[in-house]
Nucleic acid binder design. Structure first.
Length: 295
DNA sequence: AATCGTTCCTGATAGC
DNA sequence: TGCTATCAGGAACGAT
């Protein structure tokens, strides 16, 4: 599932000069599942509003991909669980846009194409999304930045302003550490994979009550969060299941995972058996010997 | 105001 | 073999 490193990989790809996405204009949109577009909730209006708009900037906030368009409009793409953008090419045939490249289709994970943006530079951006949970929204940029959903997002863990003091402040919230780490209103970008990996590395039990964690352990979680996210970006993300980059390629961080989806295997630190439990309806993987709950 | 449960989806897998 | 049931999982939403 795309978390911060995966979304960052996509955004860096979109900003790659060679792709010429910046400065291109939207020509049209195809979809076989209009419900992906949440705003406006009318697909024809969405198409009309998007047509001819020039891409000025592509950036990321948490797990959201944001295309700032000329004229004070922003296109938001959230890939949710199984969505990923793929860049390909199109050509015109019999008066219609035809995809001549939808990213490598020999990979089953790239076959669930439900939406394609056609650009005026001959490129297309296709959204592959097995579970159709992704969301697409078109906003007035000012309105978006003033919106509740944007303003309530927590700090970016890799930004300079995210100091240990800041981390302690946002984490002064009750609950189990894993759930709090994954709360986008506390910190953005961490999902199930990286929460498990961060807590394993920091040797903290996922169900540990946040308010009971010692300062030295908070510091460990803080440093580990930055460290793991940075390493995962370098590896271009994790592809345990769906994630692919813009070219359809897998990320390499899966090789570095130590507990996520390793139930029953040996802990790489102490050889105890990795366990899986449910926390708030989500699976959590951890080492019962290294990550002690305490009181 | 904060928190909990439900909902959206469908491929993979298990069970019969 | 082929059917049905169960599950994963981010985040918005309604209910409490």
């Amino acid at each position: 599932m795309p978390e911060l490193p995966e979304v960052e990989t996509i955004v860096r790809g979109l900003n790659n000069r060679a792709l010429n996405i910046l400065g291109a204009r939207f020509l049209g949109v195809w979809t076989d599942f209009k419900k992906l577009i949440k705003k406006p909730n009318n697909f024809e209006k969405f198409k009309k509003d998007l047509k001819g708009k020039k891409i000025e900037k592509v950036w990321r906030r948490g797990k959201n991909i944001i295309f700032d368009l000329k004229g004070g409009i922003s296109l938001l793409v959230h890939q949710k669980l199984t969505g990923h953008l793929l860049c390909g090419k199109w050509k015109k045939a019999k008066g219609q846009w035809r995809s001549i490249e939808r990213g490598p289709l020999d990979d089953p994970m790239n076959r669930f194409l439900h939406l394609i943006f056609y650009l005026d530079n001959g490129k297309q951006l296709a959204l592959s999304d097995l579970r159709k949970f992704a969301k697409i929204e078109l906003w007035e940029t000012d309105e978006f930045k003033e919106s509740r959903e944007f303003k309530s997002l927590g700090p970016e863990p890799l930004e300079k302003y995210f100091t240990f003091e800041k981390f302690k402040k946002v984490l002064s919230k009750k609950g189990k550490i894993k759930q709090v780490l994954m709360d986008q209103n506390v910190i953005v970008g961490i999902g199930n994979i990286y929460a498990d990996e961060i807590l394993f590395e920091a040797k903290i039990h996922p169900e540990k009550d946040v308010l009971k964690i010692l300062e030295k352990d908070l510091k460990k979680i803080y440093l580990t969060t930055k460290n793991i996210l940075k390493k995962a970006i370098k590896a271009r993300g994790t592809s345990t299941s769906d994630f692919r980059d813009l070219e359809g390629k897998k990320g390499l961080f899966g090789k570095s995972l130590r507990v996520y989806r390793k139930t029953g295997q040996k802990c790489p630190r102490c050889s105890a058996t990795i366990r899986r439990i449910k926390i708030g309806g989500r699976s959590a993987h951890f080492c019962p010997a290294c990550q002690i709950l305490g009181d």
